[in-house]
Every structure is written in C-alpha cells, then in structure tokens.
Design a protein around this nucleic acid. Sequence first.
DNA 1: AGCGTGATCTTT
DNA 2: AAGATCACGCTG
Length: 219
Amino acid sequence: MTCYIIILTRTFTNCIDGLMQRLEKQFFERPTLELAAKLLGKIFVRRIADGSFLKGRIVETEAYLGFGDEACHAWRGRTERNSMMFAEPGRLYVYFTYGSHYMLNIVSEPEQTAGAVLIRAMEPLAGESFMRERRNTSLAANLMSGPGKLTQAMDIDRSCNGRSLFEGEFHLEDAPELPEETIGSSTRVGITRSRDLPWRKFIIGNPHVSRVKASSNTK
DNA sequence: AGCGTGATCTTT
DNA sequence: AAGATCACGCTG
C-alpha cells in the first residue's frame, strides 16, 4: 500500500514536471522591467559534465536598461565588456566585478538595444551537494542568496558569457505565474547613479532572497 | 563597519 | 601611465 502511494505520488510529480515546458524565445521578448518580474518563480537549469542538473528557482532580480539608466553598464554606449547586452534576448551576460565575483544576467530587449536582468538570488532545487561543496557551507539559505554566491554555486564564470538559453547546457523551465501580491519591489542594490528607480523585484518573504543592509524585503 | 580583489573605464 | 569605480561577500 505504502509502495503504491509512493508510485502514484512519483507519477503525479512527473506529470507536473512534464507540463512545465522550457521557456522559448517569445517569453523574453518583453520590456526589461516586466521581464524582471516575470522571471521570478521560473527555474534556471544548468546541465553539468556528469550529466546531472543544477537547478534554482529565481527569487530576486534587477532590471538594467541601456537607455536612460545611468546604473547600466551600457548607458554610455557599447564597450567590449558590455557588448553582450546588445545581443538578442535569451542570452547570458556574465561579467566579473569587485576582483572576485561573477554576475549572471539574462539579456533582454531586441538586438542592438541594450538591456538585461540581473539574477540576484535563487532557491536551490537540484544539485545541492555540488553547490555546498563549491560554496563551502552547509546552510541551504546561504548557497545562492546573492548574485556572487549563485554564480559560485553553479560554477558560472566568464566562459558562460554569451551562452544561449535555447540550446546547450543552460535553459529556463516554466513555472506557474506568481500572484501579484507576492512580488515586492525596491531600489536596486549597490549602485550610486539612478538609485531611486524601484527596479529590484523579489518574492516577498522567501528565505533565499539576499540580505540587504538597512532596507526592507517586505514590500 | 572594514577590507580584499582585479578588470574596466576615464583622465592625464 | 595612473587613478577611480565597482550590479559583492566575508570577517569581526
């Protein structure tokens, strides 16, 4: 009997998984700020060398726009570092900062228009032992609760810059749309220019959202 | 609250 | 060639 229930549960779970499709190109073809909110709850997936998967549910993002947003790397135009922000939506923009951290962004806006969504935090869903080893911590809420942490956990570095979410080792899995009242907005973290824009989006109350100094994660 | 870290960009 | 800045994380 117990066995039967387990099999039924498994089957049901697999069905649910089966219904959740890989996100295709059209999903990313929307304004960056809207994309930043719609990405919350979606599942970022990387297949690693041994064939297994690292998965994380996106719980915190920030929007960056080339035009009219002085906090964006591309606000003064194209340079060698920021050029991936001008690519077509659905590619990864990965850069190095503060002498030690890689930042993961998903490119938005049509080709030749700069825009991207910074992935700031994820909730680990698969591959946690791999992540624990890379992060050197045992606490789940410390694996991917920050933009530098999640790239370390998922072994994402400069070599991932420009990779596509529509082929190869990276993709996003769809997930049910979140109720609007579960999504919070705030100003972006760690910037000086254009600091008043409420372009940070997060899932209210989720323990994997990054801790920010003297600000709220509640609204 | 302070500091390591190094690539990138601006200014000389 | 030199200096400033930086979409951060860790220790204390």
